[in-house]
Design a protein around this nucleic acid. Structure first.
Length: 499
RNA sequence: GCCGCAUUCGUCUAGAGGCCCAGGACACCGCCCUCUCAAGGCGGAGAUCAUCGGUUCGAAUCCGAUAUGCGGUACCA
């Protein structure tokens, strides 16, 4: 049997971390098994579904490096695959057809109970400490009763007969699971009174129609699985295998939510995480290779991923670990690649400086490329580039006399040191202005004046960058350039003199 | 309430009856490197394997109960 798996997000929000991981596991499983990965949009919640969310979901999927073999059209992208349409609102006819069939076979029936009535039932059951369930009031209506309801203008829902007994299945991740039908809440509604189908029904129709072989989804669907199994059986469809993934959790171990965590993939992207790191991190949230390796590319993952090695307990989303993995991957990128990804972040950073009143110079690909050796190890995210090097791209630093003074030093010593350093640098001259040429003479002045080299360097660093943590000093000076280095030292000296 | 699932260092996890008085990684601490910050190297601390019972010569691993957490229980998905 060929492996066919699917991701079935509903476009009621931007691509969620949890959905992204589910997508990844489906994708990796498909790749590993030489199967087919299908994307289906579950947009039957008309009130909350939007085209923008659809776009975000597909866009972030691509960003993460996942493509699908079958899926819906969007914009200029045509639909792919022989089992379409892949958007549920376009499959309404099909659901109606299956519902009719179920009705004709008496596997489903019309129910005219009013929502208020149902609420009252539920309350009564609760009071009686019984599990809430539908009391099957309409389960055996006569033709006359139905006609009467109809004549009264009542719009019925369609309910699926659940019956009695136990539903059992073997989940790839959880093992054997048995659930009594009594726990299912009675005959379930599959079509609303307005004629639109409900989730439990549409997934089953679609999964059956699309010949899905493995349903890999979040644990929150585990308790619903018996309903699905019953529906599959009623349709005489082949049962897929189920694999229920552990949940991704907030730090307080509740199901990851927007309220307590950042859940949109797009947000992480905007913060400078790269897909290589993000995918690696997501893969490791609930799965491990069994070896001690943990840096894996998408390609390596799709060689090794095993569904039955997926962990069963929920996993807290740990940003520190994500950041570390992201840094690992940033360090692996080629120069050209890194530069290309870095520039937009630098530009954005400079733009905000500019709107704050600074005069900024353009950040070109060449200029950033030259900085790579000194910043590469200092980038946990792409967004870290701005704070690291933006001082190189502004005309004037915003400084004050207090911050110019290294700790352990006073203003007078600092002024003295900057003057001496300026002298040395001018002595080296513009032609020999190289990192290798600068260090020795600067160390020598420090020694002559009994300053710790580190203190001298710190004074210089602050004067020239406005920061206490920067890339290596001499490379920084060279990147700044001879003229601007001297200008900044002079500006700092002037500030100290005034103070 | 009812049903289901889960539970190994703070976090992600390895572990499929003896190799485990539990291994790796992130974070943390220390040292080395060092002009700051990183990166890197080395080392440290950190888990009575939720608890209690049972099975077994032997249990983190199998079984049961309890606890805790989470999920489901919608004319949401």
């Amino acid at each position: 049997m060929s492996v066919r798996v699917r991701l079935a997000p509903s476009p009621t929000g931007p691509l969620h971390i949890g959905t992204a991981r589910t997508a990844l596991y489906n994708y990796l499983f498909a790749k590993r098994m030489g199967g087919t990965f299908i994307l289906r949009l579950e947009d039957t919640d008309e009130a909350r579904s939007t085209l923008d969310f659809e776009r975000d979901i597909l866009d972030q999927m691509h960003w993460l490096g996942m493509d699908w073999d079958e899926g819906p059209e969007l914009g200029d992208q045509p639909a792919k695959g022989p089992y379409g349409p892949y958007r549920q609102m376009q499959r309404l006819e099909r659901y109606r057809e299956v519902a009719e069939q179920l009705l004709a076979q008496d596997k489903a029936y019309y129910c005219y109970c009013a929502p208020e009535q149902l609420d009252a039932d539920r309350k009564a059951q609760e009071a009686a400490h019984q599990p809430p369930h539908y009391v099957a009031r309409c389960a055996h209506l006569t033709g006359a009763e139905r006609a009467a309801n109809q004549a009264n203008g009542l719009k019925p829902v369609i309910r699926f007969r659940v019956g009695e007994g136990v539903v059992a299945f073997d989940d790839i991740i959880r093992g054997h699971v048995e659930i009594d039908k009594k726990a299912l809440g009675g005959d379930l509604i599959i079509v609303r009174s307005n004629g639109t189908p409900l989730y439990h029904f549409t997934v089953c129709v679609d999964d059956a129609d699309m010949k899905i072989s493995h349903v890999i989804r979040g644990e929150d669907h585990l308790s619903n699985t018996p309903k699905h199994i019953l529906l599959f059986r009623a349709m005489d469809a082949d049962l897929p295998q189920f694999a229920h993934l552990p949940l991704i959790l907030n730090p307080d171990r509740t199901k990851m939510s927007k309220r307590k965590s950042q859940t949109a993939v797009a947000d992480y992207r905007a913060q400078g995480y790269i897909p290589e790191g993000f995918v690696n991190f997501l893969a490791l949230l609930g799965w491990a290779s069994g070896t001690e390796e943990e840096i894996f590319s998408m390609g390596e993952l799709s060689q090794r991923f095993e569904l039955d090695h997926v962990h069963q307990g929920g996993a807290v989303f740990d940003r520190e670990r994500l950041e570390w993995l992201n840094g690992q991957w940033i360090r692996k990128l080629s120069d050209e690649d890194l530069v290309e990804r870095l520039v937009p972040f630098l530009v954005a950073d400079l733009r905000t400086l500019e709107s704050g009143g600074a005069n900024v110079r353009g950040a070109s690909v060449e200029s950033v490329r030259a900085l790579l050796p000194m910043i590469r190890e200092r980038l946990p995210t792409l967004a870290a580039v701005g704070p690291l090097v933006d001082f190189l791209f502004v005309d004037e630093l915003i400084l004050d006399a207090v911050m110019l003074v290294p700790k352990r030093w006073d203003a007078a010593t600092t002024l003295d040191a900057l003057t001496a350093a300026r002298h040395v640098i001018a002595g080296v001259g513009e032609v020999s202005f190289e990192a290798d040429e600068l260090e020795a003479p600067l160390r020598q002045v420090a020694e002559e004046r009994a300053w710790k080299p580190g203190d001298l360097f710190m004074a210089l660093r602050i004067a020239v960058t406005g920061k206490t943590a920067t890339p290596p000093l001499f490379d920084t000076l060279v990147a700044l350039g001879y003229e601007r280095t001297l200008e900044r030292i002079d500006a700092a000296r002037a500030l100290l003199e005034d103070a």
